[in-house]
C-alpha cells in the first residue's frame, strides 16, 4: 500500500508549514519582517495497474501525497511606525536598502540603523552591524555629530557638515527568488535577477513594522494542525489494516 508513504508526505508537508507559521508568529514585532506562506502541490502520480502501459485509455492515476512546493514571502509593506529617531528609515514603496557584512552585499527593508565607530571613523550600519551602502556601493562615513542628519525622499543624506551621501535603494524583478539570509536581510540569486534601481521613497524617523497578520497566522496554525491530524489518521488506519493482514497468518 502506497498510503503509508502518502501519509508520511502529508505529515512532513504540514510540519514544514508549521515552521513557516511559527516563524511568522515569532516575528510579529520584528521591524521589516516579511511574512512567509507555504504552498503545496500534489506529489507524483503512478498508474495503479501496469505502470508501463500508459497508452491505455482508462484513468488509473494514483497520487502519492502532497509536497511543499515553495514558500512565498509577502513583500507588501508593513505599516510605518513613528520613532522620531534620526537614524530610523522607512521605505515607502517597492525597494530595499543595500547593506554589506564586509564580504557579501545583502538587501533589507529594515531601516533601524545605528552608528559604528571603527578607527575613529563613524559608519552608518544596520542593527546587526552590517554597513549600509551608498549609490556607488561604498560604506557611508558619518560625522561625529549626527544630530543634524537629514534624509531626502530620494535617499540623499545631508550629513549636516556640508557633505552628503545617497542611500542605495534597489528592487528585483523576482522577489520570490531572494534568499533569506537572516536578520531581515536577503541575498540576490540567479532566480531573483540583478538589483535594479528602486522607486521607493525614504522617510526618516519611521520604521517599517512586521507585515505579519496575526489573525491570519492563527487561522493557518489551526488549519495546519487539522491537516496534520488528518494525515496522522490515515497513518493509523493504514496500521490497523496492515495488522489485519498480519493476523491472517
Amino acid at each position: 500500500m502506497q498510503s503509508v508513504y502518502t501519509a508520511r508526505h502529508g505529515l512532513i508537508a504540514q510540519q514544514r508549514r508549521m515552521d513557516a507559521v511559527a516563524s511568522n508568529i515569532a516575528n510579529v514585532n520584528t521591524a521589516g519582517y516579511k511574512s512567509q506562506r507555504a504552498g503545496f502541490k500534489d506529489a507524483l502520480y503512478t498508474r495503479m495497474i501496469d505502470p508501463s502501459n500508459v497508452a491505455s485509455d482508462a484513468n488509473l492515476m494514483q497520487g502519492s501525497g502532497a509536497v511543499l512546493a515553495s514558500t512565498y514571502r509577502d513583500f507588501s509593506a508593513g505599516a510605518p511606525i513613528l520613532t522620531s529617531q534620526k537614524l530610523d528609515f522607512y521605505l515607502e514603496g517597492d525597494g530595499f536598502f543595500a547593506v554589506s557584512d564586509g564580504e557579501r552585499t545583502m538587501y533589507t527593508r529594515s531601516g533601524a540603523f545605528a552608528v559604528s565607530v571603527q578607527n575613529n571613523q563613524n559608519y552608518l550600519v544596520t542593527a546587526d552591524g552590517y554597513y549600509v551602502l551608498d549609490e556607488r556601493g561604498q560604506r557611508i562615513a558619518l560625522p561625529q555629530d549626527v544630530s543634524g542628519l537629514t534624509v531626502a525622499e530620494d535617499g540623499t543624506i545631508d550629513l549636516g557638515n556640508g557633505s552628503s551621501a545617497k542611500l542605495r535603494v534597489v528592487t528585483f524583478v523576482n522577489k520570490d527568488g531572494l534568499l533569506h539570509a537572516g536578520n531581515s536581510c536577503y541575498l540576490a540569486t540567479e532566480a531573483s535577477g540583478e538589483p535594479a534601481a528602486g522607486a521607493a521613497k525614504v522617510r526618516q524617523g519611521q520604521l517599517e513594522s512586521s507585515n505579519v497578520d496575526i489573525s491570519l497566522e492563527m487561522t493557518r496554525l489551526i488549519r495546519t494542525q487539522r491537516a496534520y491530524s488528518i494525515a496522522a489518521r490515515v497513518l493509523s488506519t493504514w496500521n490497523e489494516m496492515e495488522s489485519e493482514t498480519n493476523s491472517m497468518l
Binding site: Q2, S3, S64, T237
Partner: peptide, 17 residues
C-alpha cells in the same frame, strides 16, 4: 487497499492549492 491509497492521497491534499 487501492481505495485506501486514493483516499489517503485526497486526505493529505486537503491544503493543496
Amino acid at each position: 487497499r487501492d481505495r485506501m491509497d486514493v483516499v489517503s492521497s485526497n486526505l493529505t491534499n486537503v491544503e493543496t492549492t
